[in-house]
């Protein structure tokens, strides 16, 4: 591929290192691009050729609500994840490295545990007769079980917990790269800790927040297991609706169209992320 052709016409040259990418590329084309194309085809041919599936999805109040729910959940999860992850990432960034590597180990360990197991564990904790509600009621703090599951609260708790590592890891990278002297300088110039945070730390950590935030947001958009188990029927998200259309209604055309819309939105957000943060920074080169 890298043989130079001495033509005056502009020729398309494979970028260096392309050969190494080949196995992965073949795999992706076979098992991702081809099925996605089949999906797209189904969405415009079933039950009959045309765009009626897309029209039905975009014109119906129920589906609109599911789309709205999907973005609402993804937004809430992203914001809460950022709020929880930031202090953790900051502690990790300024901690002695021996201690930090232990904390990192704990964070990574949680990612290695099966997702379904972790979600079921949350069910045991959050349900009406679960550990949290029993404790609260036994302690007399509340006389009724709090509604912690089958609603937005349940989804948020379960998903934030799963998404945290994806937020903490890029944030730590960004925060570590910030020169601590900038904060000291701010303090010397009379800035309060809050001013130093708002005017120095926050702007400098913005690339990390954006990278982690978009990653969490995009992952949340397509989430299935956690919302299905911890959410209620009125919090239904797109992935769950697609499963329902295909498994329960056997409506492959409509399900494919919904899946394709989700894919397009996800890709658009990813493109936005690349533009905002830059591919090099995204891959950890911050």
């Amino acid at each position: 591929m890298s043989v130079e052709t001495r033509q005056s016409l502009p020729t398309f040259r494979m970028p260096a290192g392309f050969n190494g990418l080949l196995p992965a590329l073949v795999l992706i084309v076979l098992f991702f691009v081809v099925p996605v194309m089949a999906l797209l085809l189904r969405s415009v041919t079933e039950p009959e050729p045309g765009l009626q599936n897309y029209a039905a999805l975009l014109g119906d109040g129920t589906y609109a609500r599911v789309f709205f729910n999907t973005f609402l959940v993804a937004s809430v999860v992203t914001i809460v994840t950022i709020l929880v992850a930031f202090p953790v990432a900051w502690m990790l960034a300024i901690m002695p490295s021996a201690l930090a590597s232990i904390v990192f180990g704990v964070i990574i360990l949680s990612m290695w545990t099966n997702l379904l197991t972790r979600t079921y564990a949350w069910m045991v904790l959050l349900q009406r007769t679960g550990v949290i509600n029993r404790t609260l009621m036994a302690a007399g703090i509340s006389d009724q079980p709090l509604p912690l599951i089958n609603n937005l609260t349940g989804i948020t708790i379960g998903m934030v917990y799963i998404m945290l590592p994806f937020m903490i890891l890029p944030l730590v990278g960004t925060l570590r790269a910030i020169d601590p002297m900038t904060l000291r300088a701010a303090a010397l110039c009379g800035a309060s800790p809050f001013q130093a945070f708002r005017r120095i730390l926050l702007p400098l950590s913005l690339p990390g927040i954006a990278a982690g935030g978009l990653m969490v947001f995009v992952m949340s958009l397509g989430y299935f297991v956690t919302p299905a188990l911890l959410g209620g029927t009125s919090n239904m998200m797109l992935a769950e609706m697609i499963a329902q259309m295909i498994q329960s209604l056997l409506n492959w055309g409509l399900g494919s169209a919904a899946a394709f819309i989700l894919l397009v939105v996800t890709m658009a957000l990813y493109a936005l992320q690349l533009r905002l943060v830059g591919a090099r920074r995204m891959s950890g080169g911050a």
């Binding site: 109040g61 609500r65 009125s234 209604l249």
Partner: peptide, 14 residues
Amino acid sequence: RDEIATRWYAWQAK
């Protein structure tokens, strides 16, 4: 079946 299912899921999602 289909008519009821459509209304059923629409009602649930409300």
